[in-house]
């Protein structure tokens, strides 16, 4: 049973997500909140672990990205998912950098939400061709210009950070997968073209998410421990 925290300011949407999660037997609704402040207070009081954070990016009193960072400090193994109206490039990249596992479009059908959460937990992180293309372009331009290699990757900025991180990390196979996705091929088509399974493609993508994240899980655990938020044995 995965404990899910929903944070969404639109009451209809919040109710829609909350009921979708509640109906799913594999998921448990931990709380359904409307603002950043409520979420922060709730997190401060609730000692139980959170497995999944489903949050809107545009909260009335703060950014969903800040909420993701806060949750990851308290619950390093939590999987944050972002609710996005448009799934546009800048917001998605910023979410991935903050540590999101994936993103969900607001106009998805009701049944999809719970299933999408489960899919992502199972490794089916989405990636749009636009993001794949942007990561690849940056990656290739940095390969051609090795000067920044010795410099630390910038920690802010939607485009520079993931590419800077990706530079040393992308395997040839991951690059091929990214290139095909950038050309519009679906996961299954990529799997066929690469003669691998869809599961392998999903693994590549999920790995990519982890690599693009500014604070990897390991770093988050270390940081949380250092700050005394997490005991070393927990």
């Amino acid at each position: 049973m995965w404990r899910v925290l929903v944070v969404e300011d639109d009451p209809d949407m919040r109710e829609f997500f909350a009921s979708s999660v509640s109906r799913c037997v594999a998921l448990e609704l931990a709380a359904s909140l409307g603002t950043f402040a409520e979420a922060r207070d709730w997190l401060g009081q609730d000692p139980k672990r959170i497995d999944v954070l489903l949050t809107d990016l545009g909260l009335p009193d703060g950014s969903g990205l800040d909420l993701i960072r806060l949750v990851l400090r308290l619950h390093p193994y939590c999987e944050p998912l972002v609710i996005s109206m448009f799934g546009d490039e800048d917001n998605v990249l910023a979410s991935i950098e903050a540590g999101a596992l994936g993103y969900i479009h607001k106009d998805s059908t009701p049944d999809d939400i719970a299933q999408t959460i489960l899919d992502m937990l199972g490794g089916a992180s989405p990636i749009s061709p636009m993001i794949a293309r942007r990561v690849l372009t940056k990656y290739r331009s940095q390969l051609a210009d090795p000067a920044p290699a010795s410099a630390p990757a910038p920690q802010s900025g939607a485009a520079a950070a993931p590419a800077g991180t990706a530079r040393q990390l992308l395997s040839p196979r991951e690059q091929e997968v990214l290139a095909l996705i950038a050309r519009g091929f679906s996961y299954s088509e990529v799997a066929r073209l690469q003669t691998v399974t869809v599961h392998t493609v999903r693994t590549h993508i999920k790995n990519l998410y982890a690599k693009l994240s500014v604070h990897s899980k390991t770093e988050a655990v270390f940081e949380a421990t250092r700050m005394g938020l997490l005991s070393p044995h927990s």
Binding site: S128, P129, M130, R133, I181, A182, R183, G184
Partner: peptide
């Protein structure tokens, strides 16, 4: 990129 995005 345009085509891929429309498909997406």
């Amino acid at each position: 990129a345009l085509l891929a995005n429309i498909r997406y």
